[in-house]
Design a protein around this nucleic acid. Structure first.
Lengths: 330, 330
DNA sequence: CTGAAAGCGCTTACAG
DNA sequence: CTGAAAGCGCTTACAG
């Protein structure tokens, strides 16, 4: 691999001049600039990025932390982020935390060791008090999940409470009074699931409807959706509807319901969350909350890049709206 | 951020000694080693990886090129790769080529600029003659898609011909004689779709069945699956079965068939490919070829890491088997 | 077992 | 507009 020295020799100039050409410095003789560019091409020169980084310039790399890239919701936002990053010649390091606190911390070190210019947190495992100190080491933008109280970062998410309130109200309007609720796996670190539940509770209270403990479930996978149906069937008093908090859980609930001979929505109405591809493919098609994944991903990446570039950031939260999509499962 | 100098001062030793401790060099006084480690912890020292890289050690980073991370097949293999990489303290750079030749080449530069230790190609856009020269710049392992003739790299894939032969034979045994075929978008760069088709042609020929041109389709998305059904309905002679080459296409075909009042498999039998989650959720559940995504991803990452570490590689192809999973759509 | 010194490939004041 | 020189933070022969 040729180095800057080789190019300098080839073009008959100093390394400084080559460097200036490389960085589009203004004061370079046009003639020399052309000659240097020509030499670079002829030698197939590409700057060694480690050397550039060491010298203090940026890495042009952003770390993106997600719980699991296999979750379609995460791959959709990562896809959108990647598109924006690419347009600005930034690279993305994929950080699959697999819901591990340790992994999450491990990846956050990338910021400290200057291996990335910024970090996007699309999931949150550790308590915020553990994560917050990292803000001092470099730019962090939080997307989707978010801390209970935000005094130090930029957050991009949807209004969880409003979305779940709308979903609950929808079921109530359909005549349901026995509505069960499935929590996404609740990390105490994130206020997401708590805020969602608030929307549910608010709508139920407004209509004086009961919220039984036995109608509370947990899960975030197809498999857990299947299990929920079995558990429901064992109940003396059975709910007639469920808010699943995830299309994957909803898909599992629907698949298992069919196997058990239950009709959806006749015996059990089901509301998903996310509006993944599967939601409009299943029979019945799933009524769900549409997450604006593309907007979430794009906005998040635009914000982190702007912070990285300008050094300026604003503490605060960007809310996107997430509409209820009525289909056949309710 | 403290540097090696700070640690050296704090521990009262030279930078060399700190470096030796850092790299687990054997000949270091136990006492000093402990003292250095203690200083590192106390100062919160982490080595600057750019400096380490510049000095010639590895980047511990692998670039993974996929067409689109949103495709569940790709996110599944990337997930498996990530797990292996992580276990060896390697990072993954996500390279979404979006089927762009230019992007693919762009990402391959990461190998030349020493930003990564190795590259995994899980999709292939450019002709192999364009990609092959990059083998000289560093380790490359090809996964899933592969060049027509392989004289220079390690390939990990399934036996495409055998898989499609089995799928076709299955339909023939079910009594079908009018079988249509959907090509995955055919990059001339990859021999995958060509090899798959060979399996189809072989089975059809063995049974002297006709392969009409009008029964040939193309596509790789849910949407294209929907379109195929419309196109089929316009045909004078309609096929009674289709090999889609992708569960996403199959899902589109099934969804649209229902809308058109066609029964699956009664009016149209459908075979998918990949065995994505959606395959067992749809009604009817999709008969498909199961791709061993986890094995593909794991083996690929193990191979590239082994090449990176030992410097030794073997030209050749690892084949995994991909069984036919019979469900309800045939 | 340990330190001084050279050098990896760049960039950036500094002095012309 | 341009070059010589210093320095980014590390590692690794080299000589003890």
């Amino acid at each position: 691999m040729p180095t800057i020295k080789d190019v300098a020799k080839h073009a008959g100039v100093s390394r400084s001049t080559v460097s200036r050409v490389l960085n589009n410095h203004p004061y370079v003789d046009e003639e020399k600039r052309r000659s240097v560019k020509n030499s670079m091409k002829e030698l197939g020169y590409l700057p060694n990025s480690s050397a550039q980084r060491l010298r203090g310039t940026q890495t042009r790399t952003i770390a993106v932390l997600v719980a699991r890239i296999m979750n379609p919701f995460f791959s959709a936002i990562v896809d959108a982020m990647d598109e924006v990053a690419n347009a600005h010649s930034y690279r993305l390091i994929l950080c699959n935390t697999r819901n591990s606190k340790k992994q999450e911390l491990h990846y956050l070190q990338l910021l400290r060791t200057k291996q990335v210019d910024g970090v996007v947190l699309a999931s949150l495992e550790n308590d915020w008090s553990v994560i917050e100190p990292y803000v001092a080491y470099g730019p962090i933008v939080v997307c989707n999940e978010y801390p209970p109280e935000n005094k130090s970062v930029t957050v991009v998410t949807i209004n969880q409470t409003k979305a779940m309130y709308a979903a609950t109200t929808h079921l109530i309007e359909k005549g349901h009074t026995a509505i069960s609720y499935c929590n996404v796996i609740g990390h105490s670190a994130s206020a997401l699931s708590e805020d969602r539940r608030k929307g549910f509770v608010q709508a139920m209270n407004e209509h004086r409807l009961p919220m039984k403990k036995t109608w509370n479930f947990k899960g975030h996978s197809i498999e857990s959706g299947r299990k929920i149906v079995s558990e429901m069937l064992a109940l003396a008093e059975k709910p007639t509807a469920i808010l699943t908090g995830s299309d994957e859980v909803a898909a599992g609930v629907i698949a298992q319901s069919k196997m058990e001979g239950l009709s959806v929505p006749g015996d059990l109405a089901v509301v998903g969350f996310d509006d993944q591809a599967v939601a409009s493919l299943l029979e019945p098609q799933i009524t769900t909350i549409r997450q604006p994944t593309e907007e979430l991903g794009r906005k998040t990446m635009e914000l982190i890049l702007s912070i990285v570039t300008t050094g300026e950031m604003e503490v605060g939260t960007y809310y996107f709206s997430a509409p209820l999509i009525q289909r056949q499962s309710t």
